[in-house]
Amino acid sequence: MNDPRVSAFDGGCDCRHVRYRLTDTPLFVRWCQRESGSAFALNAMIEADRVTLLHGDVAVVSTPSNSGRGQQIARCPHCRIAL
């Protein structure tokens, strides 16, 4: 990256309403078609306290899981992309 203001761990949604920065590397990254419903999705797992919200707000959605405990997914309230 040529822009020193942009971290390699910055990200966000497609509509750019939400921007975030990972302050550490993810615990793991995996391809998970079952959970995402997409043939081309990568999921990165990271502790919530290691993500800094730079811009916008998120909508947290509870979804079921095979474990029965469910999971919380943060989504952009505008474009609904999972963050």
Rank of each mutant, 00 (worst) to 15 (best):
M1Q: 02
N2V: 15
D3R: 04
P4T: 09
P4F: 14
R5D: 07
R5Q: 08
R5G: 00
S7W: 05
S7I: 00
S7E: 03
A8F: 01
F9V: 00
F9D: 02
D10S: 07
G11D: 09
G11F: 14
D14I: 07
R16S: 10
R16D: 06
V18Q: 08
Y20S: 04
Y20V: 11
Y20W: 10
R21V: 07
R21F: 07
D24G: 00
P26A: 14
P26R: 14
P26Y: 10
F28H: 13
F28A: 05
R30Y: 09
W31M: 12
C32D: 15
Q33W: 04
Q33D: 11
Q33R: 09
R34Y: 02
R34E: 13
E35I: 03
E35W: 00
E35F: 01
S36W: 14
S38M: 11
S38C: 12
S38A: 15
A39P: 05
A39R: 15
L42Q: 13
N43A: 10
I46L: 13
E47Y: 12
E47I: 11
A48W: 12
D49V: 04
D49G: 12
R50T: 00
R50I: 06
V51R: 04
V51C: 06
V51F: 04
V51Y: 03
V51M: 10
V51K: 06
V51A: 05
T52R: 08
T52L: 06
L54C: 07
H55N: 07
H55W: 02
D57A: 15
D57E: 15
V58L: 05
V58R: 05
V58C: 04
V60A: 08
V60L: 05
V60D: 07
V60C: 02
S62R: 09
T63P: 02
T63S: 04
P64H: 01
S65T: 10
S67C: 08
S67D: 09
R69P: 01
R69N: 08
Q71I: 09
Q72F: 09
I73H: 06
R75H: 12
C79I: 02
R80I: 00
A82M: 06
A82H: 03
L83Q: 03
L83V: 07
